[in-house]
Design a protein around this nucleic acid. Structure first.
Lengths: 333, 333
DNA sequence: ACCATTTTTGAATACGTATTCAAAATAATT
DNA sequence: AATTATTTTGAATACGTATTCAAAAATGGT
């Protein structure tokens, strides 16, 4: 691999001068500068960003710890994060949970000396959160956040739950099922609280057999669970899913069983991912423009990286809206 | 940031010993080893992977130059690539085209000193391909490949085109439209050739007004184009799209116009992305297990990185299968 | 207890870059 | 032309790690 030393030799200057041509071209006289530029062309030289990072102590890279691409929420946020970061001159490294713990991912992220991190996949009480918040590495939690503290952006999950539950209740449904994510995640806890509140007020507390907690990383239980529920003497007439991804998986199962949506059963999600709006789904859901969530996360992160208002607490809660589409309908006996 | 020197000082050993504990623990006596491990714990030390890469000259990172996440083909391949690479101990950096040229992306990739690259987004005659193939950096082209040479994995695109066109023709369609990707990409060229062949043999050469070349990065023209075609006196009764992503976007437009699929018009894709199989789409398409494509690319790349059969030409062509689902139907006058 | 081997250790160095500091070259002023 | 101020340059160094090489320590055999 050709290095700046090779360029220096070819151009008859010192390595320092080559470095200057790269980082501060005006500081070197045109004659030499051109010689260097020629040599760079000639040798097809590309600066070693690794070595550069070592000395500058910044990588112009941010990390995004994301959930699986099987979930369109993460696709949408990832897309907006990568694109905005790129516009701002930053590269994004993507990390998935897989089966490693957050602790292991965090080790790797720290090792990569990224300038900042966006985390989308933390449970509320993970012991490593303390480390993360004290690490001095700028961070934004996106959607899922610690129980206490941290910089985060999320939608008002409680409200989201209330909006969707009210909608379903108002449509006259009484046997309502809930497919929830695991409650160690702030997102799903908040959503469920909102739903519980509305259901209680409506005098329709959720029945045990109709509430299921799904592993949102794999969604693997959904098929079995939905299939089973629909075999009941009185199957649910509506299934509230606390994410679009679950709703879409759920629809796949129901349609596969030959049921019609919303004829036989109403389905709803939460997130308002891009896919939910597709004419083939027209999923009723609640959310806030997803791309905006990702962008706000990046904007704030870059502010912190740039030391702007460094100690301002960044805890942003967006107000979600109900998107009534075509997977929910009035219940008729 | 705490370095191995700090650990060394705390443990009362040399920095070299700390390094050894990390990379070859058996080579240091248990007494010292434990002291070092304690100090590591104590100081919450994390090795600087950047610095490590600089000296080892490998990053245990591969790059994936991908198309936009708006296209499910790339989501599926990305997912399988990242996961398999992770299992093998490699991290994946994702690069998108955005509006930079492949040349610029390639510069960045080279700067990051990745151990290998998977490219999914090259046109056949891009001048930078020469550089890439001569760079000495192990590479695999995935799906899209150079006109000549290179290591690649793809499906038999010509056959894919033939299969889908035959299917549509056999269903009795005569006014058939084609939504093709741009022909500078091997993928779309091959697919169109297969389609053209079948259409010619059937005595149904494609009419000018019914063939459109779509910018597959944005898909932005699709709405206008489809809308326009459907206003014709004799609109097409089938639209062949040369990617699932186009087909799904196309369906969105048609359904939005109030048309029924396949009642009013048959739609087909190519790729067989996961999403195409969803009950809400049931898209007729042709392809080969996508996850396998990604995995084969990774396997081969890692072989090259590990210098196994280093100079073996890796040009793999998979045989696609026709997946008849529910978006195509017999044409009745 | 002695020497010969083998194992463990630390000092020094390399990786490729940016940056500091002092020297050299140029420009500005008299 | 001589002096001073300014700009441009190169040598040296630092970043944090892995590795080489020689010295030191431990082990084995007698």
């Amino acid at each position: 691999m050709v290095s700046s030393k090779d360029v220096a030799r070819a151009a008859g200057v010192s390595q320092a001068t080559v470095s200057r041509v790269l980082n501060n071209p005006e500081s070197v006289r045109p004659v030499k500068r051109n010689k260097v530029l020629e040599a760079i062309q000639q040798l097809n030289y590309e600066p070693n960003l690794i070595a550069r990072s070592l000395v500058t102590n910044n990588t112009r890279t941010i990390a995004f710890i994301s959930g699986s691409m099987r979930n369109n929420f993460f696709i949408d946020t990832m897309d907006s994060i990568i694109n905005l970061a790129k516009d701002r001159g930053y590269r994004t490294m993507i990390f998935f949970d897989g089966n490693e713990s957050l602790k292991d991912i965090w080790s790797t992220v720290k090792g990569h000396m990224v300038d900042g991190v966006i985390l989308s996949l933390v449970s509320m009480d993970d012991p490593v959160l303390e480390d993360i918040m004290n690490s001095g590495i700028p961070h934004m939690f996106l959607s899922r956040r610690p129980r206490f503290g941290g910089n985060y952006i999320e939608i008002d999950n409680r409200l989201a739950g209330e909006l969707i539950a009210s909608h379903v209740v108002e449509l006259g449904h009484r046997r309502i099922a809930l497919l929830s994510g695991e409650l160690q995640y702030s997102t799903f806890l908040g959503r469920k609280e909102g739903i519980d509140k509305v259901m209680a007020e409506a005098g329709l507390p959720l029945e045990a057999g109709l509430v299921h907690y799904i592993n949102t990383a794999t969604l693997s239980e959904i098929e079995k669970v939905v299939w089973k529920m629909m075999q009941f003497n009185e199957p649910p007439t509506a299934i509230i899913c606390t994410s679009d991804a679950m709703a879409i998986a759920c629809m796949d199962v129901l349609l596969g069983m030959g049921l019609s949506i919303p004829g036989d059963v109403s389905i709803s999600g939460i997130d308002d991912s891009k896919l939910a709006a597709h004419q083939s789904f027209q999923l009723t859901t609640v959310g806030h423009k997803i791309f905006e969530i990702g962008e706000i996360a990046v904007e704030n992160l870059l502010e912190m990286i740039g030391h702007k208002e460094i100690d301002k607490k960044r805890q942003i809660v967006l107000r979600p809206e109900l998107m009534i589409r075509r997977t929910t309908a009035r219940h008729v006996e």
